[in-house]
Design a protein around this nucleic acid. Structure first.
Lengths: 191, 191
DNA sequence: TGCTAAACGGAGACAGTCTCCGTATTGTTG
DNA sequence: CAACAATACGGAGACTGTCTCCGTTTAGCA
């Protein structure tokens, strides 16, 4: 087989236009109506037929992914200063809190993504990768236990996101993300 | 007003029959197909029309609740031995792990319930109440920090449930509930 | 300018939710 | 043990959302 897995073809101009419009409209719509927003409606707002939407994104998941990819980059960029912070453990703590906030802002839309450390999954990968760096730095500085993995921290963090998101949706008071992440960090910190 | 809020009327025999059949069938169906199981289908299997289902349970939430109430009692009963265990902290740990398993068996169906400490919500209340007892015992024994609330532990536990459930659904390997609850307990334990 | 692969978009099949209302059943009362 | 409310039933059907199929249009190349 020739090396055609990459760049099979450059995508026609109108196709690209529609693709981008769809992602933009979808972002808006998912933020406004949550992850169950009507896809046909998104297509309509983007000025295309449902068929076009479904050709670009075979299912809701795919569209959600595309939306999240854009978002994940901005979130990861947010971490840059933390990577060189003086206290790596505090930086990790701060990052996890931000993660909860960011993911929460997406109405839990992306919380599943934290869990998959899969390279195929761009969003997840970006976030996992960033987290890993922070975790490694904290470990190297002797700030946290060596036996705790990044995945475990991501799982716990995604859990906090879920719990805070659900509580908010039910209008139940809940402890702040800071507090819950703090508790988790307490279990992980070396003393 | 006369004290008629209680027992407004005893429910007709056929109504009760249908109610119970519906809950039974719904339990089965939710376990098999997750919380999105078709309600009309549940009605059909129970041998009633959709109208009947919707009269008893105005929406999916209500039916889910009814199913969970039954289930919560059995889960809480499971905790009885733990309430008198020698090591209250270990007992609490064990209880949280079981909670994750039980809730997870319901395919995350009930995980939202862990979060609402609302008296109105029977299911949540039973579980919260049981947890509270175990937490108090652990605190009294000096096993865990006094500043940690039951609600916080429930939030973290529901998060673990969510994370483990989602990982399983995506066929991603994830750390065991035991491990994650263990990490949480590490943050909460007095040393 | 003309041709072809690529992309479009909307009609419509299908599935699920939920309501309305005519019909049937229950249990009570004389 | 009628007969009659009150209560409950159930299914037709309106509505909403998902997703597909295929005839039509368009971009980009020669």
């Amino acid at each position: 087989m020739t090396a055609e897995t990459r760049a099979p073809r450059p995508m026609r101009a109108d196709a690209r236009r529609n693709y981008e419009k769809l992602v933009a409209v979808a972002t808006e719509s998912f933020l406004a109506n949550g992850p169950d927003a009507s896809l046909d409606d998104i297509a309509k707002r983007a000025g295309v037929g449902p068929g076009t939407l479904y050709r670009h994104f075979p299912n809701r998941e795919a569209l959600l992914d595309a939306v999240c990819v854009q978002w994940a980059d901005s979130v990861a960029a947010d971490a840059a200063p933390l990577l060189t912070a003086e206290d790596p453990t505090a930086a990790l703590n701060e990052w996890l809190v931000r993660l909860v906030d960011h993911v929460g802002a997406f109405k839990g839309l992306a919380s599943a993504l934290l869990l998959s450390a899969d390279r195929k999954h761009d969003t997840a990968w970006v976030l996992h990768h960033t987290s890993e760096e922070l975790v490694e730095r904290a470990k190297a500085a002797g700030g946290i236990r060596a036996d705790v993995t990044t995945s475990e921290l991501m799982q716990l963090t995604s859990g906090v996101t879920y719990a805070c998101g659900t509580s908010k949706a039910m209008k139940k008071p809940s402890s702040s993300p800071e507090r819950l992440i703090g508790l988790i960090m307490d279990g992980v910190r070396l003393r």
